[in-house]
Design a protein around this nucleic acid. Structure first.
Length: 744
DNA sequence: GACCTGCTGCGGGGTG
């Protein structure tokens, strides 16, 4: 399509599009179809296969999917076919609605946005004439099944495609299982296969993505991968040493007794940021909402101090919609410089325009997330993407923690950047059982069909649905458990209906979401409430934890009351680690080992960072950590595992079940014990445990209710589900075996 | 030692 304006074209894909769409392309002044668009047209236009389109953020994925899809709809006049577009965010639906509506108005194809903020009038209009494009969230689609199950065959009768946007955001989560189940149920209602289309910017493992989009027939998914053209990347990691507090705030009302102060190094980081970023658009990612507020405040005050209008705006999940939109507007407007200080809220594809640089404060939560964040920078042609990282490390003293000695935050940042440069990132963990979401789908199908038999449920959800990891005995145990809790009752003929409790839960709007907002545990010491925090890592009585900058020992976990009782614990100052609480992958820890074992300077680290890195390397060398996996430090036996948190957490659970006081310290697992030999014996026993015995070890975990419907499950099912998501038991046993065999 | 996402039906009252 060298010159579409003249009507001559050398693009076969362009010729395949409906004439009215070709005219729209001319009017828009496009001179060519982008690579992904060119390839998507022939794959999609006949609605005869599943397709994944993976391309860089600005590569026009929406048009790549919709130009051929709308051409297909235009084969009938008036338009009678429909498309289901499913998005993880309401904000994305609103964005896409404005983009599509402009195009579709001229084509006389209706576009309907359908989510919680859309009026029921608009929804009714679609139901009366269910044609065109329906933009919807998984939760609203779930609601359609529950509240209008009997009329869905008519609603989706003319469905031609199911499009899933931001596919990567669904894989491996409860919401992803729900989405897979809903796609399956849509096809059941239509009584035929409907082509599925997945859109994503960052899908590392295409096989995994295809398996998610079309379980059991992934090999037939047509994959369109359009790589970004070797964009230049500029990286700088700056190191800082923690300085004593400089600015004091009022004590935190929520957490009485915990002094709230800003370390001098934070002020130093904010000042450097201010000088480097003022005058351009940037995204700044500290790792918590609290840090977001702190930096946004320091940066705003710096603007005030110098008499400039404010350029720094906070954005996170606890802020009101209005305040978030204010920040998004400031970034999008483009009339004056604006930077957002934000959490993962600005990671997904909401349109905020191009930014000059991306700033990471503390170690990134994952390489995948770092990559996604970086994709927001350097989106104009010829512009480099810029990444700045700030790492604050502790001032060392005689009883400094291992994490501080190894400069964990800095070394992890270097390791993650190395992996990013090599093109590696964490594959999604798609192996979770998610029986909680199975429960939701069971209750939902019973509502949709006005009752269902156990074998119908098995057939839809397990045999041909997404819950293939659940065996028949477990499925039966789950149904019995739902019966015992009065969520289901069985009629004489075998039909399952809602019990009284089930009826009540399904008929409330909270039912539609598969996930729950984080349950926070209250932390109580004696008579004093220290505060509360979400606890996703395994918690057992006797374990040591860090909270509010102090060390505590868990006395009791009361899962029912969502309370953890603790008492103060001796054992030095807690480490300064600002990497957030996310789980670190095995590959990242291996690369951290390599970074410490390597003598070469790291080119993208500044002078202070280099000194800190050299300190860590000297500690690594003097303890011979390159060849030794076991050593003692500060009265503890240290197991240098260099494993990810799924293995380390599992090893801790197993060691604690052996009666040892173990805890996960990141690159290492520490065991407080008088005799190292007792650790070796325990490791040998752990290596020899049967699967049933490792399941026994799970019994000590107090905070086992993890997902929304876990409370309805048999105890052993939810413990297995917990382990399938958060622990690598076989990996921990293999590690135990290696450690015992190489014992010094 | 963390972050994020989502939500119906109906009644009551006001406005056009």
């Amino acid at each position: 399509m060298s010159s579409p304006a003249s009507g001559s074209t050398d693009s076969r894909s362009f010729d395949l599009l409906d004439e009215r769409i070709r005219r729209w392309i001319w009017r828009e002044g496009w001179t060519e179809l982008r690579d992904a668009q060119e390839r998507a047209v022939p794959a999609l236009i006949d609605a005869d296969r599943d397709v994944i389109i993976a391309a860089a953020t600005a590569a026009g994925k929406t048009e790549a999917a919709f130009l051929p899809i709308l051409s297909n709809l235009l084969r009938d006049e008036p338009c009678s076919g429909s498309v289901l577009y499913i998005s993880p965010l309401k904000a994305l639906i609103n964005d896409q609605w404005s983009r599509l509506d402009d195009l579709c108005e001229a084509l006389e194809i209706p576009v309907t946005g359908w989510h919680g903020d859309v009026s029921s009038g608009r929804k009714q209009r679609f139901l009366k004439k269910p044609a065109g494009v329906l933009l919807i969230t998984p939760e609203s689609l779930e609601a359609m099944f529950v509240t209008r199950g009997s009329s869905l065959a008519a609603t989706f009768g003319a469905l031609r495609y199911v499009v899933v946007d931001e596919l990567h955001a669904f894989i491996g989560s409860e919401r992803g299982m729900q989405l897979q189940s809903l796609m399956q149920r849509v096809e059941r209602v239509c009584a035929r296969v409907v082509p599925r289309v997945g859109l994503s910017a960052t899908l590392g493992d295409m096989r995994l993505a295809a398996e998610f989009l079309r379980p059991r027939a992934a090999q037939n998914v047509h994959i369109i991968e359009s790589g970004s053209a070797g964009q230049e990347l500029k990286i700088l990691i700056k190191g800082y040493v923690e300085k004593p507090p400089r600015v004091h705030f009022e004590p935190d009302i929520e957490n009485p007794g915990l002094e709230d102060v800003v370390p001098g190094s934070t002020v130093e980081v904010a000042n450097h940021m201010y000088k480097a970023l003022r005058g351009s658009n940037n995204l700044i990612f500290p790792n918590s909402r609290r840090q977001v507020e702190l930096y946004a405040d320091l940066l705003r005050r710096a603007c005030e101090r110098d008499g400039y209008p404010n350029e720094f705006w906070p954005h996170h999940g606890s802020l009101s919609k209005e305040l978030r939109e204010q920040t998004e507007q400031a970034l999008k407007a483009g009339d004056r410089p604006a930077s957002a200080v934000c959490t993962t809220t600005l990671e997904l594809g909401i349109d905020i325009g191009a930014v000059k640089s991306v700033v990471q404060v503390g170690a990134p939560p994952s390489v995948a997330s770092l990559r996604q964040r970086l994709g927001r920078s350097g989106r104009r042609k010829g512009e480099a993407a810029i990444l700045r990282c700030y790492c604050v490390e502790a001032e060392l003293h005689s009883d400094a923690d291992l994490s501080d000695r190894l400069r964990e935050s800095l070394v992890q940042s270097v390791a993650m950047v190395n992996l990013l440069l090599r093109g590696w990132f964490e594959p999604p963990r798609a192996s979770g059982m998610h029986p909680s979401t199975l429960v939701q789908q069971v209750l939902s199908i019973v509502a949709e069909r006005g009752g269902a038999t156990a074998s119908e449920l098995w057939d839809t959800l397990v045999a041909s649905g997404p819950f293939g990891a659940i065996d028949k005995a477990t499925f039966a145990a789950i149904l019995r458990s739902l019966g015992a809790k009065d969520l289901l009752v069985q009629e004489a003929g075998g039909l399952l209906l809602h019990g009284v409790a089930g009826e009540r839960l399904v008929n409330h709007y909270e039912f539609y979401a598969s996930f729950t907002t984080d349950d926070e545990f209250r932390i109580i010491a004696g008579a004093k409430v220290l505060g509360s925090l979400p606890v996703s890592r395994p918690l057992t009585a006797g374990q040591g934890i860090v909270f509010g900058g102090q060390r505590w020992r868990v006395q009791e976990v009361d899962a029912g009351k969502k309370t953890v009782y603790v008492k103060p614990d001796q054992g030095g100052v807690p480490p300064v680690f600002d990497g957030g609480g996310s789980l670190v992958h095995d590959e990242v820890r291996r690369e951290m080992f390599n970074v410490l074992n390597d003598g070469q300077p790291v080119v993208f680290v500044d002078a202070t960072g280099r000194e800190l890195l050299e300190e860590a390397r000297r500690f690594f060398a003097s303890n011979e950590l390159a060849s030794r996996a076991v050593f003692t430090h500060g009265g503890s036996t240290i197991l240098a595992t260099w494993s990810g948190d799924w293995i380390n957490d599992a090893l801790v659970v197993l060691l604690r079940a052996e009666g040892l006081d173990a805890w996960n310290q990141g690159p290492t697992v520490s065991v407080r014990t008088s005799g190292a030999d007792s650790v070796k014996d325990a490791l040998q026993r752990i290596a020899a445990l049967t699967p049933a015995q490792t399941r026994d070890a799970l019994r000590a975990i107090g905070n086992i209710d993890n997902e929304k419907w876990d409370w309805t499950l048999p105890d052993d099912v939810k413990r297995s589900a917990y382990a399938s998501l958060r622990l690598d038991m076989p990996g921990a046993q293999a590690l135990a075996s290696r450690l015992a065999a190489g014992w010094p």
